[in-house]
Amino acid sequence: MPSNLPAGHSRRTITMTVNDEQHTVYVEPRRTLLDALREDLGLTGAKKVCDLGQCGACTVIKGNRAIYSCLTLAVECAGQSIQTIEGLAQADPAPGSQLRLHAIQQAFIECDAYQCGYCTPGQIMAIKALLEHNPNPTLDEVKMGVSGNLCRCGAYPNIFRAALRAAELLRTAG
């Protein structure tokens, strides 16, 4: 890169829908969706672990598919709809009341489906995409659904249980 170019000379303005709200960011074309979410929008739930598409900690939902946000450029998301972990729980308007967690989030707590929690947002988004396509998965389908999401603490057995439990909660909730 020539050293005389001012930083950000080629930045572009991108508008995308994130968690049902329109956001406009001004980013270099090389900025990944992950960095745009974390650095430009302050949505740090998706994690940067490998930045190489190897671990799944940055998983978000684009349209209706789980993607690695570190392998997607922000400029490729212009006009697209992105869901992140921050959009899952609903805030209750009553003061002093707690967040209403999504069934997958409840199931993760109930099943202790994490240790350090660093891969958790990615695991939950991968499971959300899985359950949207397949509301009644088998254990093997759950394993495939999170096979692109590494957990170094080894919480896998509880992640599987949580995914099956969440599917059950969502089905009974209608």
Partner: peptide, 9 residues
């Protein structure tokens, strides 16, 4: 748990 599953941690 809630912090860890919501991305608030």
């Amino acid at each position: 748990g809630a912090e860890r599953v919501t991305g608030q941690a």
